[in-house]
Nucleic acid binder design. Structure first.
Length: 422
RNA sequence: GCGACCAUAGCUCAACUGGCAGAGCACCGGACUGUGGCUCCGGGGGUUACCGGUUCGACCCCGGUUGGUCGCCCCA
């Protein structure tokens, strides 16, 4: 045997039957996006490195140390997307979508890449789906998007996912807040962990969600961002909350929640699940408003808001609750003898052509082994085709879960199946 | 990037102090001549992750590599 080549660390194969969980997730998700009028976009996995440096932020962990970046043969610096908001915005600008429509609502779904140490619910190739809405600065847009996320999660029958909400202010009030926060943290600098002392210089907001108890104690007395919002931001935040209240969407305000990407303004939120299956990876989704990003990437001044969910994590939760979308055949056709194999093959092909899910064993073999395979396939019915059936034109439709077989005319098989599966 | 633990059949795991690598499940076949599931019987499956060392002898002890799990960190 030749030397074996194994898969790349942190990148997983998704095989049957586990893939059925993903089919369930994707089908429910697409249905929810459809109900909300969001349309799918697909952007390339590779982008100009500068796109992520300018959007996600040079100082973030994602860009600073987690991107798969390399030069192509022409010497261009390319990066595998670590997230899909920036690529979507790039496509939005590049195709001048704002010229054709005032409000654009997109969703995406696909693999993202971050070079990270792996653990439960965290992989180097991971899957995200997300919704993005461009063109509306109104609180109703924030609320609709959050409602979309909540309905999607609800549609997956996942209990125990809660919503945390915050506002990070905008370019008018955030500088002042950062100044007062930095001043407060400097006064307590010696009480912070080493990591946070460094964050104090680079990105003081990140100190707020440090899990270190010492830092938590300091943060407890820190000025809250929600108290420092300017009037318009405060009004926006209140309006979003009002809309959420109106649709009875439960949430908790967490003024210490910040996000890992630099582009957020005003609304920020996370979908959090406290489930053992996720280990310490409790966030299944998160997002917020990014009113400046389109312009910062060279586009028109168009406000936007969006979120992303971790599909791997959702699948961990779905696997635990046993949710999946199975693809079982309706009928399994077995050939009792070699002479019947041609007719069995023809019958299977014809039924499939008319829309039925039908399986058979291409190896033939003993009837017994074919019946075993029929059972394993999970088919609802089995039909044996042999000398007798070929002569009479009749067959026995046998329910594999138990119960009486039914005699039927073979030329009405399709209709008989349809009637029984209704 | 830092630390801890782990790696034996496709899967879950045994194998005494260093002494012939096993079981259950799964898969294939038979008992049962054209009918699956249950039961019984049989069969195929292994460079004990990889490389090196110690030893008469290594799944076991030692070193390294790779991979996995869990914390820190970060996030989805």
């Amino acid at each position: 045997m030749s030397q074996r080549i194994s898969g790349v660390k942190g990148m997983n194969d998704l095989l049957p039957p586990d893939i059925e969980v993903w089919h369930f997730l994707e089908a429910r998700a697409r249905e929810t996006f459809r109900r909300f009028g969001y349309q799918e976009v697909r952007t390339p996995v590779l982008e100009d490195t500068a796109l992520f440096v300018r959007s996600v932020g040079e100082e973030t962990d994602i860009v600073g140390k987690e991107m798969y970046t390399f030069e192509d043969r022409a010497g261009r610096s390319l990066s595998m997307r670590p997230e899909n908001t920036a690529p979507a915005v790039r496509a939005y600008i590049e195709h001048a979508v704002h010229v054709r429509e005032a409000v654009t609502r997109w969703y995406y779904l696909g693999p993202m890449f971050r070079y990270e140490r792996m653990k439960t619910g965290r992989y180097r190739q991971f899957w995200q789906m997300g919704g993005e809405a461009y063109g509306s600065a109104e609180p109703a847009q924030d609320a609709e998007l959050i409602d979309l996320g909540l309905q999607l999660i609800h549609g997956l029958d996942l209990p125990g996912v809660r919503l945390e909400l915050n506002s990070l202010g905008d370019e008018n009030c955030r500088p002042a807040y950062l100044a007062s926060l930095t001043a407060y943290l400097r006064a307590h600098q010696s009480e912070l962990c080493a990591e946070c002392q460094a964050r104090l210089e680079r990105n003081p907001l990140r100190v707020l969600d440090c899990k270190n108890p010492k830092c938590q104690a300091v943060v407890a007395g820190a000025p809250a961002v929600t108290d420092a919002l300017c009037r318009p931001c405060q009004a926006h935040f209140e309006a979003v909350r009002h809309k959420l209240d109106a649709i009875h969407a439960p949430y908790t305000v967490n003024p210490r929640m910040v996000r890992g990407l630099d582009y957020y303004t005003r609304t920020a939120f996370e979908f959090i699940a406290d489930a053992p299956a996720l280990g310490t990876a409790t966030a299944v989704g998160g997002g917020g408003r990014y009113d400046r990003l389109v312009q910062e990437l060279g586009g028109p001044s168009v406000p936007a808001v969006g979120w992303a969910m971790g599909m791997d994590r959702l699948c961990l939760l779905l696997a635990e609750s046993g949710k999946r979308e199975e693809a079982k055949p309706e009928l399994f056709v077995a050939a009792a003898d070699a002479a019947a194999q041609d007719e069995a093959f023809r019958l299977v092909s014809e039924l499939r052509r008319s829309g039925h899910a039908v399986d058979f064993d291409p190896r033939g073999g003993s009837l017994k082994s074919q019946m075993k395979r029929a059972d394993k396939s999970g088919a609802r019915f089995a039909l044996v085709l042999g000398e007798r059936e070929l002569a009479s034109g009749d067959g026995e439709l046998k329910p594999l879960a138990g119960g009486e077989s039914v005699r039927i005319r073979l030329d009405t098989l399709g209709a008989a199946l349809a009637a029984r599966l209704r």
